[in-house]
Protein backbone atom coordinates (compact mmCIF):
# COMPACT_ATOMS: atom_id res chain seq x y z
CA UNK A 1 0.00 0.00 0.00
CA UNK A 2 2.07 2.92 -1.28
CA UNK A 3 0.56 6.32 -1.46
CA UNK A 4 2.15 9.68 -2.04
CA UNK A 5 0.61 11.47 0.88
CA UNK A 6 1.33 10.04 4.27
CA UNK A 7 -2.16 10.97 5.50
CA UNK A 8 -3.81 8.51 3.15
CA UNK A 9 -1.53 5.71 4.25
CA UNK A 10 -2.38 6.26 7.84
CA UNK A 11 -6.08 6.29 7.06
CA UNK A 12 -5.90 3.16 4.96
CA UNK A 13 -3.74 1.18 7.35
CA UNK A 14 -6.33 0.46 10.07
CA UNK A 15 -8.87 -0.63 7.45
CA UNK A 16 -6.48 -3.24 6.12
CA UNK A 17 -5.72 -4.40 9.62
CA UNK A 18 -9.36 -4.80 10.47
CA UNK A 19 -9.77 -7.24 7.59
CA UNK A 20 -6.77 -9.27 8.68
CA UNK A 21 -7.64 -8.81 12.30
CA UNK A 22 -10.66 -11.09 12.12
CA UNK A 23 -8.56 -14.22 11.90
CA UNK A 24 -6.29 -12.91 14.58
CA UNK A 25 -9.20 -12.03 16.86
CA UNK A 26 -10.69 -15.49 16.48
CA UNK A 27 -7.34 -17.16 17.20
CA UNK A 28 -6.75 -14.84 20.15
CA UNK A 29 -10.16 -15.64 21.62
CA UNK A 30 -9.50 -19.32 21.13
CA UNK A 31 -6.10 -19.16 22.82
CA UNK A 32 -7.35 -16.99 25.63
CA UNK A 33 -10.13 -19.44 26.49
CA UNK A 34 -7.77 -22.39 26.21
CA UNK A 35 -5.33 -20.68 28.57
CA UNK A 36 -8.12 -19.90 30.99
CA UNK A 37 -9.08 -23.59 31.09
CA UNK A 38 -5.44 -24.64 31.45
CA UNK A 39 -5.00 -22.34 34.45
CA UNK A 40 -8.08 -23.77 36.17
CA UNK A 41 -8.11 -27.42 35.16
CA UNK A 42 -10.59 -28.24 37.91
CA UNK A 43 -13.40 -26.56 35.96
CA UNK A 44 -12.85 -28.84 33.01
CA UNK A 45 -12.47 -31.92 35.19
CA UNK A 46 -15.72 -31.47 37.12
CA UNK A 47 -18.03 -32.49 34.24
CA UNK A 48 -15.90 -35.58 33.62
CA UNK A 49 -16.05 -36.61 37.27
CA UNK A 50 -19.79 -35.94 37.24
CA UNK A 51 -20.10 -38.16 34.15
CA UNK A 52 -18.29 -40.98 35.94
CA UNK A 53 -20.41 -40.50 39.07
CA UNK A 54 -23.71 -40.70 37.20
CA UNK A 55 -22.52 -43.87 35.46
CA UNK A 56 -21.67 -45.34 38.88
CA UNK A 57 -25.19 -44.70 40.11
CA UNK A 58 -26.79 -47.01 37.57
CA UNK A 59 -25.29 -50.35 38.61
CA UNK A 60 -26.11 -49.42 42.21
CA UNK A 61 -29.65 -48.38 41.36
CA UNK A 62 -30.59 -51.05 38.84
CA UNK A 63 -28.50 -54.16 39.15
CA UNK A 64 -24.83 -55.21 39.01
CA UNK A 65 -25.80 -57.99 36.61
CA UNK A 66 -23.62 -57.50 33.48
CA UNK A 67 -26.33 -58.69 31.10
CA UNK A 68 -28.82 -56.15 32.34
CA UNK A 69 -26.23 -53.40 32.40
CA UNK A 70 -25.19 -54.18 28.85
CA UNK A 71 -28.77 -53.61 27.73
CA UNK A 72 -29.00 -50.12 29.15
CA UNK A 73 -25.35 -49.12 28.74
CA UNK A 74 -25.64 -47.15 25.45
CA UNK A 75 -28.55 -45.08 26.69
CA UNK A 76 -27.05 -44.52 30.14
CA UNK A 77 -23.72 -43.39 28.68
CA UNK A 78 -25.41 -40.96 26.33
CA UNK A 79 -27.83 -39.54 28.88
CA UNK A 80 -25.03 -39.09 31.39
CA UNK A 81 -23.00 -37.30 28.71
CA UNK A 82 -25.90 -34.92 28.05
CA UNK A 83 -26.32 -34.17 31.76
CA UNK A 84 -22.63 -33.52 32.24
CA UNK A 85 -22.67 -31.22 29.20
CA UNK A 86 -25.45 -29.21 30.87
CA UNK A 87 -23.25 -28.82 33.91
CA UNK A 88 -20.38 -27.36 31.93
CA UNK A 89 -22.60 -25.29 29.62
CA UNK A 90 -23.94 -23.35 32.55
CA UNK A 91 -20.48 -21.92 33.13
CA UNK A 92 -19.63 -21.40 29.46
CA UNK A 93 -20.21 -17.64 29.43
CA UNK A 94 -20.71 -16.95 33.13
CA UNK A 95 -17.14 -15.95 34.03
CA UNK A 96 -16.81 -13.78 30.93
CA UNK A 97 -20.16 -12.17 31.65
CA UNK A 98 -19.21 -11.30 35.20
CA UNK A 99 -15.77 -9.83 34.49
CA UNK A 100 -16.89 -7.87 31.43
CA UNK A 101 -15.04 -9.89 28.79
CA UNK A 102 -18.27 -10.48 26.89
CA UNK A 103 -18.88 -6.76 26.63
CA UNK A 104 -15.43 -6.34 25.14
CA UNK A 105 -16.19 -9.08 22.61
CA UNK A 106 -19.39 -7.26 21.72
CA UNK A 107 -17.46 -4.04 21.21
CA UNK A 108 -14.80 -5.68 19.05
CA UNK A 109 -14.95 -4.70 15.38
CA UNK A 110 -15.53 -8.32 14.38
CA UNK A 111 -18.61 -10.46 13.96
CA UNK A 112 -19.59 -11.69 17.41
CA UNK A 113 -20.79 -14.99 15.96
CA UNK A 114 -17.26 -15.96 14.87
CA UNK A 115 -15.65 -14.96 18.15
CA UNK A 116 -18.28 -16.94 19.96
CA UNK A 117 -17.61 -19.90 17.70
CA UNK A 118 -14.03 -19.88 18.97
CA UNK A 119 -15.30 -20.00 22.54
CA UNK A 120 -17.63 -22.88 21.72
CA UNK A 121 -14.77 -24.71 20.01
CA UNK A 122 -12.73 -24.46 23.21
CA UNK A 123 -15.71 -25.73 25.18
CA UNK A 124 -15.95 -28.76 22.92
CA UNK A 125 -12.20 -29.39 23.05
CA UNK A 126 -12.13 -29.27 26.83
CA UNK A 127 -15.38 -31.06 27.68
CA UNK A 128 -16.90 -32.91 24.70
CA UNK A 129 -13.74 -34.46 23.31
CA UNK A 130 -12.34 -35.66 26.69
CA UNK A 131 -15.76 -37.09 27.43
CA UNK A 132 -15.77 -39.01 24.15
CA UNK A 133 -12.31 -40.37 24.93
CA UNK A 134 -13.25 -41.32 28.47
CA UNK A 135 -16.61 -42.92 27.65
CA UNK A 136 -15.21 -46.32 26.49
CA UNK A 137 -13.57 -46.73 29.89
CA UNK A 138 -16.92 -46.29 31.59
CA UNK A 139 -18.45 -48.51 28.95
CA UNK A 140 -16.25 -51.30 30.30
CA UNK A 141 -17.68 -50.69 33.77
CA UNK A 142 -21.19 -51.00 32.35
CA UNK A 143 -20.27 -54.23 30.52
CA UNK A 144 -20.93 -52.60 27.17
CA UNK A 145 -20.60 -55.42 24.62
CA UNK A 146 -17.70 -55.58 22.21
CA UNK A 147 -18.07 -53.87 18.88
CA UNK A 148 -19.75 -50.66 19.98
CA UNK A 149 -16.83 -48.87 21.60
CA UNK A 150 -15.72 -47.13 18.44
CA UNK A 151 -19.30 -46.13 17.71
CA UNK A 152 -19.61 -44.76 21.26
CA UNK A 153 -16.52 -42.58 20.97
CA UNK A 154 -17.17 -41.43 17.43
CA UNK A 155 -20.82 -40.47 18.03
CA UNK A 156 -19.99 -38.77 21.30
CA UNK A 157 -17.17 -36.81 19.69
CA UNK A 158 -19.36 -35.46 16.89
CA UNK A 159 -22.53 -35.30 18.98
CA UNK A 160 -20.90 -33.30 21.73
CA UNK A 161 -20.01 -30.73 19.08
CA UNK A 162 -23.72 -30.33 18.37
CA UNK A 163 -24.43 -30.19 22.07
CA UNK A 164 -21.84 -27.47 22.67
CA UNK A 165 -23.26 -25.39 19.81
CA UNK A 166 -26.94 -25.79 20.64
CA UNK A 167 -26.33 -25.56 24.36
CA UNK A 168 -24.40 -22.32 23.94
CA UNK A 169 -27.60 -20.69 22.65
CA UNK A 170 -29.31 -21.53 25.92
CA UNK A 171 -26.22 -20.58 27.90
CA UNK A 172 -26.19 -17.21 26.17
CA UNK A 173 -29.85 -16.61 26.96
CA UNK A 174 -29.54 -17.55 30.62
CA UNK A 175 -26.12 -16.11 31.43
CA UNK A 176 -27.48 -12.98 33.04
CA UNK A 177 -30.16 -14.70 35.09
CA UNK A 178 -29.83 -15.47 38.77
CA UNK A 179 -30.79 -19.12 38.53
CA UNK A 180 -30.00 -19.63 34.89
CA UNK A 181 -28.77 -23.19 35.26
CA UNK A 182 -32.20 -24.63 35.97
CA UNK A 183 -33.75 -22.79 33.07
CA UNK A 184 -30.86 -23.71 30.77
CA UNK A 185 -31.57 -27.41 31.18
CA UNK A 186 -35.26 -26.86 30.40
CA UNK A 187 -34.48 -24.84 27.29
CA UNK A 188 -31.85 -27.02 25.66
CA UNK A 189 -32.66 -30.61 26.64
CA UNK A 190 -35.55 -30.86 24.13
CA UNK A 191 -33.17 -29.66 21.43
CA UNK A 192 -30.65 -32.39 22.30
CA UNK A 193 -33.08 -35.22 21.64
CA UNK A 194 -32.24 -35.80 17.96
CA UNK A 195 -28.55 -36.15 18.82
CA UNK A 196 -29.42 -38.62 21.58
CA UNK A 197 -31.60 -40.66 19.25
CA UNK A 198 -28.97 -40.97 16.56
CA UNK A 199 -26.13 -41.49 19.04
CA UNK A 200 -27.81 -44.42 20.74
CA UNK A 201 -29.12 -45.54 17.35
CA UNK A 202 -25.57 -45.85 16.04
CA UNK A 203 -24.59 -47.91 19.08
CA UNK A 204 -27.63 -50.12 18.67
CA UNK A 205 -26.73 -50.69 15.04
CA UNK A 206 -23.10 -51.43 15.92
CA UNK A 207 -24.21 -53.93 18.58
CA UNK A 208 -26.51 -55.63 16.11
CA UNK A 209 -23.56 -56.00 13.75
CA UNK A 210 -25.11 -53.53 11.37
CA UNK A 211 -23.86 -50.45 9.61
CA UNK A 212 -23.56 -47.58 12.07
CA UNK A 213 -21.72 -45.09 9.88
CA UNK A 214 -25.05 -43.91 8.48
CA UNK A 215 -26.13 -42.76 11.93
CA UNK A 216 -22.79 -41.08 12.42
CA UNK A 217 -23.34 -39.30 9.11
CA UNK A 218 -26.69 -37.99 10.37
CA UNK A 219 -24.99 -36.65 13.49
CA UNK A 220 -22.40 -35.09 11.19
CA UNK A 221 -25.23 -33.46 9.25
CA UNK A 222 -26.77 -32.14 12.47
CA UNK A 223 -23.36 -30.80 13.42
CA UNK A 224 -22.95 -28.97 10.10
CA UNK A 225 -26.38 -27.40 10.40
CA UNK A 226 -25.63 -26.32 13.96
CA UNK A 227 -22.26 -24.97 12.87
CA UNK A 228 -23.98 -22.75 10.33
CA UNK A 229 -26.98 -21.59 12.30
CA UNK A 230 -26.06 -21.75 15.97
CA UNK A 231 -23.32 -19.06 16.06
CA UNK A 232 -25.83 -16.47 14.82
CA UNK A 233 -28.33 -17.48 17.49
CA UNK A 234 -25.61 -17.53 20.17
CA UNK A 235 -24.51 -14.03 19.21
CA UNK A 236 -28.11 -12.79 19.29
CA UNK A 237 -28.71 -14.38 22.68
CA UNK A 238 -25.56 -12.84 24.16
CA UNK A 239 -26.58 -9.42 22.87
CA UNK A 240 -29.95 -9.83 24.60
CA UNK A 241 -28.32 -10.87 27.86
CA UNK A 242 -25.88 -8.00 27.85
CA UNK A 243 -27.85 -4.97 26.86
CA UNK A 244 -31.38 -6.20 26.42
Amino acid sequence: MKTTTSGLTEAAEPVREAGEGLGRAVVATFRRDLTAVARRPGDALTPLVFFAMVITLFPLGISPDPERLALIAPGVLWVAALLSALLSLDGLFRGDFEDGTLEQLLLAPHPLSLLVLAKVAVHWLTTGLPLALMAPLLGVLLALPQGSYLALSATLALGSGCISLIGAIGAGLTVGLARGGMLLSLLVLPLFMPVLIFGTGAMGAALGGGEWLGHLAVIGALLSVSLMAAPIAIAASLRISIHG
Partner: peptide
Amino acid sequence: VLAMVGVINIPIIKYS
Protein backbone atom coordinates in the same frame (compact mmCIF):
# COMPACT_ATOMS: atom_id res chain seq x y z
CA VAL B 1 -34.86 -16.21 19.63
CA LEU B 2 -35.89 -19.39 21.40
CA ALA B 3 -39.05 -19.72 19.31
CA MET B 4 -37.01 -19.37 16.13
CA VAL B 5 -34.43 -21.90 17.29
CA GLY B 6 -37.27 -24.23 18.28
CA VAL B 7 -39.01 -23.99 14.94
CA ILE B 8 -35.83 -25.01 13.11
CA ASN B 9 -35.57 -27.98 15.44
CA ILE B 10 -39.18 -29.13 15.27
CA PRO B 11 -38.88 -30.92 11.92
CA ILE B 12 -35.54 -32.43 12.95
CA ILE B 13 -37.03 -33.67 16.22
CA LYS B 14 -40.14 -34.94 14.46
CA TYR B 15 -38.24 -36.97 11.88
CA SER B 16 -35.65 -38.30 14.28
